[in-house]
Design a binder for these strands. Structure first.
Lengths: 248, 248
DNA sequence: GTGCATTTGTACGTATGTATA
DNA sequence: CTATACATACGTACAAATGCA
């Protein structure tokens, strides 16, 4: 028994090796955002591969949001600062291919945003509290529904940031934009937007008060309830019990 | 005022248009997993682009986990069933490029897994309960540490499935594997693995009892506590308060 | 099992529009 | 404004790999 256990040698494509090396350089920090990759012709020399191979590798790196190349740019492809764009893309694909229901997405938002509120209540700075306050103020003063939604998003964004967890911040952002993308037209066609906006502001003020008081569990519960009230109408009745399961 | 507001025509690359069309066909379901794309030469005719362009598009689609092409396959690229591999990749990249700390990842796990437990306590079927029971049993009987961890994962997997939320299921899976990848070597080198395994089993039995009793909040709290106990030693002391903020 | 036709992977050359110095 | 270098896109060619008769 035992002996050398040889791994199967999977045929790895040339472009994959190029991707790996560049990816490693970026993720290890030896290539920082703003810096440039060598030109395609230079890369084909350094990796001793053809132009096509270099280009396929660059396409993959671009799809992963790590670099961007523009025609004619004499400096070569640019290393990009991190954006959750790739995460957003793959989660959007996920939502369509895995047939995620609106209920599942809203439920996920309830989990993430309420956790953000819970953490924010304990970890927020006074400056972040002031930002939340300002966002609610701008919601109250919003001229139209679009501006209102934008400030609503801004409020949730500050809360997520105040949670101190970048992953929570990014995921709330991604899932929120997916949900809004799914029902923005229905939201815009809502019958009594004024009443909805008024109620939303009330909810946010309650959450803000709980965050200000440092009452995490309360802030979390209020966040879940507000989100349920806001979205339940757009969720098929049969799936609402799953949402209510989070309201204890 | 008014008049036609012309949008700036962003120069969209040829390969991007190919990607968009194929992506649309897959996500809309008109191309199902297992089906094949036309060959590269056929695609260059249908899209009237060069083969390089077709290939760049295929590389992007492959990077997104939608298709796979093998050399010499006369049937063309295969449309893949959904896997969270792309999500996993972009979140792993995220963890490195955005410099996510282990504390943030563990905190995220605490949020997701406790929510899964909460929902599972209310929505689980009897069959899923039996699966959890069986997983704990196999944990107790595990011959070595690797087998133990595998059954541990299996338990969490059933709980996530029982939550009824595919997004929670996928994200718990992705984040768990990232966390385990970061500290698996440290876990393997732990001094008193027997004691750790015994304690882990106890924790799981408590969670299981709460799920069996339908007590969601208790199951959620026990899950957070178990996870904190399991991972806190590997998190820098300065970041542990952020984790404890979830333990109320 | 063998040979054949086809496909992918890779290399190389060329033309064109573009961005920078 | 001009020149240069670049990315984009097209086309051809050949080796390796695959599926099928």
């Amino acid at each position: 028994m035992g002996g050398p256990r040889f791994e199967p040698v999977r045929a790895v494509r040339a472009y994959e090796r190029v991707v790996e090396q560049v990816e490693e350089a970026i993720e290890s920090g030896s290539l920082s955002p703003g810096e440039r990759l060598p030109s395609e012709r230079e890369l084909m020399v350094q990796f001793s591969v053809s132009r096509s191979t270099v280009r396929e590798a660059l396409r993959v790196l671009q799809a992963r949001g790590l670099v961007r190349s523009r025609p004619g740019d004499p400096h070569g492809a640019e290393v990009l600062p991190f954006t959750p764009a790739a995460l957003h893309k793959s989660m959007t694909t996920l939502a369509r291919v895995a047939e995620l229901s609106l209920a599942e997405l809203v439920q996920f938002r309830m989990v993430l945003d309420s956790s953000a509120s819970l953490l924010a209540a304990r970890l927020r700075t006074d400056g972040q509290l002031a930002e939340m306050d300002a966002a609610v103020g701008r919601m109250r003063a919003a001229a139209d529904h679009d501006a209102f939604v934008a400030e609503d998003v801004a409020f949730h964004d500050v809360v997520a940031r105040a949670s101190g967890n970048k992953l929570i911040q990014i995921c709330t952002d991604v899932v929120r934009s997916i949900v809004l993308g799914l029902i923005s037209e229905k939201l815009a066609a809502a019958p009594d937007k004024r009443a909805l906006m008024r109620q939303t502001i009330e909810h946010h003020e309650e959450v803000l008060a709980a965050v200000r008081a440092g009452d995490g569990p309360l802030a979390a519960r209020l966040t879940r309830e507000a989100m349920y009230d806001y979205y339940a109408d757009y969720v098929p009745a049969g799936e609402r019990p799953a949402l209510r399961a989070l309201l204890e």
